[in-house]
Design a protein around this nucleic acid. Structure first.
Length: 411
RNA sequence: GCGAUCGUAGCUCAGUUGGUUAGAGCGCCGGUUUGUGGUACCGGAGGUCGGGGGUUCGAGACCCCUCGAUCGCCCCA
């Protein structure tokens, strides 16, 4: 490689080979499962006005305050490469009048951008699959969404991952809990980690998540959300959990699970690898594989009418790390031209076309030393090899398929 | 933003306390061999050792800067 060749941008990836196959497998499985649950496809722009994200996600969040790819376009507007799906979907819902379809089940996937330090399972351009149910505040929407997530992980063959579930309550419950936590941690603030002293006023809920042993000592006795839950919020959560039980979705209560973005209310959840599992090992410290929750206040922050909604997103790269080796699979047939005659090549082209019209996959090997072409074909391990020379053809591979192949190729 | 480890052919890696012209395997290209066959042998192309500066008679190796990768912290999917 010349030193003149530009390098890829930090934190971006060129995905190829088994990794690309695993990536495609995740997306294809998501597409299949999403149809089973009757979620409709939507495509949103990759960039939006910056305020779409800053207003929806919250100015003080890390995502908005230091991780966005923002730039000014030629017209002087501040635009931002989407750091997540939900805000853009909410904007689309409002600006297109999708209220008429409520409750609306949407699915999408694509690239997201966050200016973070790259790490295992974390990239600056990364990819997510995403599912949302917009315009309904019914707990059955939460159940439906989680049932789909659960089935998706099963269809991907991912094991050792558990649904961790919590409720943040409604806006009042959440605010009361937050105030309670501040009181509690303020009393011992001198003994908390530096990070948590920072978090105390910015985002006290985050302290509950801390990995620092100094914090953990106090987290166990910190006030629990359950004490602050209004009757309605409690009833909502109970109806979600009983729905999950009925739908056969296994879950685990995670009292200290919070979500980083300001818009979450009520249900919050993450699918996390079990400790010591192969999945935990494969993912490293970026362990949440799928996460989301209810965001009843989000639409209002974008100037829309109060519109309840739930959603989740999952990192395609992280899922791909868990699905195991995927390979391309063998070609149905490879056509080899075994000499340099024009006759053989012409017959090869014709055979290739017939093959593909019949719905079989295949390719042609007619380059390089004729003597070595057959070896090349063998190395690709196709189901069959059809070789042409000036005065004939030969088929190798599973003999029972030869008559069928000869019929298709007109031999 | 902070910390640790690491950058040598397309890939995986050797390269001794600093010492001539930097190596191997795989892959690629060609030749011979074989001829229902992932064979064997021979040959070839491909590197300003991530980049820049410094120390030295001499640097792939030592020092500084920089870029990148990997793994943690943070954050999150």
């Amino acid at each position: 490689m010349s030193k003149n060749t530009p390098k890829a941008i930090r934190g971006t990836q060129d995905i190829f080979g088994p990794d690309a196959e695993a990536f495609a497998f995740v997306v294809e499985t998501f597409e299949r499962v999403r149809k089973l649950y009757r979620f409709r496809r939507a495509e949103m722009p990759v960039f939006e006005k910056t305020e779409v994200f800053s207003r929806a996600i919250g100015e003080t969040t890390d995502v908005v305050s230091k991780e966005m790819y923002s730039f000014e376009d030629r017209g002087g507007d501040s635009l931002t490469l989407r750091p997540e799906f939900t805000a853009g979907i909410a904007r689309a819902y409002l600006t297109n009048g999708w209220q008429q379809h409520a409750p609306l089940k949407l699915a999408t996937h694509g690239p997201l951008f966050r200016y973070e330090r790259p790490q295992k399972g974390r990239y600056r351009q990364f990819h997510q699959i995403d599912a949302e149910i917009l315009g309904t505040g019914e707990p059955q929407a939460d159940v439906e969404l989680l049932a789909m997530a659960d089935q998706l992980l099963k269809e991907l063959g991912i094991e050792g991952v558990t649904l961790h579930l919590n409720t943040l309550g409604d806006a009042e419950s959440r605010d009361a809990w937050r105030a309670g936590l501040i009181d509690y941690f303020e009393a011992v603030s001198g003994e908390l980690s530096e990070d948590s002293q920072e978090r105390l006023h910015k985002n006290p809920l985050r302290i509950l998540d801390s990995k620092d042993p100094r914090d953990k000592a106090f987290v166990a006795d910190a006030p629990k959300i359950d004490h602050f839950l209004s009757e309605e919020a409690l009833a909502f959560f109970e109806s979600v959990t009983s729905g999950l039980d009925a739908a056969g979705v296994k879950w685990k209560r995670a009292e200290s699970l919070v979500r980083g973005l300001d818009y979450y209310r009520h249900t919050a959840f993450e699918f996390i690898p079990d400790e010591g599992s192969a999945a935990a090992d494969a993912l490293g410290s970026q362990s949440t594989v799928l996460g989301g929750g209810r965001y009843d206040g989000l639409m209002e922050s974008l100037g829309g009418p109060a519109t309840p909604a739930v959603g989740w997103a999952a990192g395609i790269e992280r899922l791909a790390m868990l699905v195991g080796e995927k390979s391309e699979g063998p070609a149905d047939a490879i056509i080899v031209i075994e000499d340099s005659s024009d006759v053989a090549l012409v017959r090869g082209y014709a055979a290739l076309k017939s093959l593909r019209l019949a719905g079989l996959s295949g390719e042609l090997i007619a380059e390089g030393s004729p003597r070595k072409r057959y070896d090349k074909a063998v190395r690709r391990s196709p189901n069959a090899i059809v070789s042409f020379s000036e005065n004939g053809h030969r088929i190798s591979g599973d003999e029972t398929t030869h008559p069928e192949l000869e019929r298709i190729l007109g031999l």
